[in-house]
Amino acid sequence: MGAENDMAVEVFDLATGELRELNQRLHDLNEDAAKTPWRIVHPRGAHAVAAGVDSPVKIDIEGHVGYYCAGMNQHAQITVHGMVGVGVAENMMSGIVRVKGHASQSAGATAHGGLLVIEGDAASRCGISMKGIDIVVGGSVGHMSCFMAQAGHLLVCGDADEALGDSLYEAQIYVRGQVKGLGADCVEKEMRDEHLDTLAGLLEKAEMGKVKPSEFRRYGSARQLYNFQVDNTSRY
């Protein structure tokens, strides 16, 4: 199927097609070809679906997927209409990944940029070692979320489990519900106007504009566990 008209959609059926073929075709998209949106049907829990995409293509995945879905994403807008396994959008660089269901562990792990939206809950270690990604979770997050997180934002509209932000660097954490426990060197911080603006902007981008920024609390690093130099602030 080509891109003859605006309604054209490239459909790939993983019940009959090979995962490697799908990902190769997605990797090969040039800027022009990326204008045609894709629908991936019957993913049946396959791992690494749409991993390594490097073009501004819009992709809808119609079902539950396995590990590392949309990993290393760059530029693409990927929506999963189901649950995702371990490491969704791990190491994402840019683009938007949206999960309509729940997410397993290590969502957005080590990711450098882009936006990850999880409409359901995210399990343990959400945003572990994140390096600049913004993550918005509609539900709650599991324990050890934002462990050693270096940069970026984690917004949690529900609750956070134990050891939130353990050994945190400079990532910013906002939680609307209960925090079961803060990890080492993670503390609650004052919510100032600029933080409310950041929250409002991210909620808007995540299409959760009805959630009120004023209901969140802010958490960050106490900067006791690493050698923080104030002169380096602009580098984060």
Partner: peptide, 12 residues
Amino acid sequence: GIDEADVWEPKP
């Protein structure tokens, strides 16, 4: 009916 099922990861 798996497409309509509630699918999640059990908590630790």
